[in-house]
Structures are given as structure tokens and as C-alpha cells.
Amino acid sequence: MSTNLLFAYGTIADPEFFGYLLKRKPVYAKAWLLDYKLLVNPESGYLFVKPAQGHQVTGQLAEITAEELEILDLWEEVPFYQREVLEVQATAGTLKAFVYTQNQARGIAISQGKPKERASMLEEIKEFRRWLDRQQNH
């Protein structure tokens, strides 16, 4: 089974959310995405990253399978979010990882906005997983 690296900075970087989405516990390693900035969409409360020289986003690196990547693409509503392969910095050095971005979106700094509430996000994830399980059982 081949694996891919994923740089997670929002929902997927939360072990409980990851567990509901992919039905397993994550194994994370700390990583940094250089020259990107973490922003929040003021209407939806969803977090996203986009290029921003001189900034960095701290996140989690996780190994995922091709099948899990398909699930994450559905969750991230690609092409609403774009999945890109970017270089990230980790303790092991510079690595290439998938990152969900929104390079054309407009957002505001987290300090000025309000990310979606955890309880609301958890309910969305559980509902998504129930929907996905129903689809896979048909």
C-alpha cells in the first residue's frame, strides 16, 4: 500500500477530526509551510492557506493512502480547495506533501476573524462520514 504525505493545518490537523474522517488515529509529525499564511473565510469560518512571502504556517504532517486522499478530496470539496504538492519543512528536512490551498480566496487573519466553532465542525464531519459510509455500502 503506497502512502503520501499530507500537510494538515486545520480540521485534518485535529486528531479527533482526522479519526472520524479516516477511521483511524493519525500519526503526526510537526511541519512548517514557508511563505504561506493561515487565513479564515469571514463568511464560513473555514481556515485556508495561500501564498504570503515571509509568513509560515505550522501544521502536522501525516502519511495517508491513495484511498484516504480520495476521501479528503471529497471532504475538502476539491476544486473549492485546491490540492497542491508543496515543499514543507520538517525535522527530517524539506519534504514534498499534499496541501489543500485556496490561492485565489480572500480571507482575514485569524486574530481578526472567527474560525468555525469546534462543535459545529465536529457535527459536519460526522454527517459527512455517515454520508460517505452510505455511499460506499451501495
Rank of each mutant, 00 (worst) to 15 (best):
S2W: 07
L5I: 03
L5N: 10
L5F: 12
L6V: 06
F7H: 02
F7W: 01
F7A: 02
F7Y: 04
Y9I: 04
G10N: 00
A13D: 08
E16K: 15
F17I: 14
F18M: 07
G19I: 01
L21V: 06
L21E: 06
L22T: 05
L22S: 05
K23P: 00
K23H: 10
K25D: 14
K25W: 08
P26N: 05
P26S: 06
P26G: 08
V27P: 04
V27G: 08
Y28V: 09
A31I: 07
W32S: 12
W32T: 15
L33R: 04
L33P: 01
Y36E: 07
K37I: 15
L38G: 03
L38P: 02
V40G: 04
N41F: 02
N41P: 01
N41R: 08
P42K: 09
E43W: 13
E43T: 15
E43Y: 14
G45V: 05
G45E: 04
G45S: 06
G45Y: 04
Y46W: 14
K50T: 11
P51L: 09
P51V: 04
Q53I: 13
G54W: 09
H55L: 11
Q56C: 12
Q56N: 11
V57E: 08
V57H: 08
T58V: 14
G59M: 08
L61Q: 08
L61W: 03
A62W: 03
A62M: 10
E63M: 12
I64V: 12
A66R: 14
E67S: 15
E67F: 11
E68L: 05
E70H: 06
L72T: 06
L72N: 00
L72M: 08
D73A: 07
D73M: 04
D73Y: 04
L74Q: 13
W75H: 07
W75G: 04
E76W: 07
V78C: 12
V78D: 09
P79W: 09
R83G: 03
R83Q: 10
R83N: 09
E84I: 08
E84F: 10
V85K: 14
L86F: 01
L86M: 05
V88F: 03
Q89V: 09
A90S: 15
A92T: 14
L95H: 03
L95E: 05
L95C: 02
L95Q: 13
K96E: 12
A97N: 04
A97K: 01
F98L: 11
T101L: 00
Q102C: 11
Q102Y: 11
N103F: 03
N103A: 11
Q104K: 13
Q104G: 11
A105Q: 10
A105C: 06
R106W: 10
G107L: 02
G107C: 05
A109T: 10
I110L: 14
S111D: 11
Q112V: 07
Q112S: 14
Q112D: 15
G113L: 02
K116G: 00
K116R: 12
E117N: 08
R118G: 02
M121D: 02
M121P: 00
L122P: 06
L122I: 06
E123H: 11
E124P: 01
I125V: 13
I125H: 01
E127K: 13
F128A: 01
R129H: 00
R129N: 00
R130W: 05
R130N: 11
W131H: 14
L132A: 01
L132G: 01
D133A: 06
Q135M: 13
N137Q: 15
N137M: 12
H138W: 09
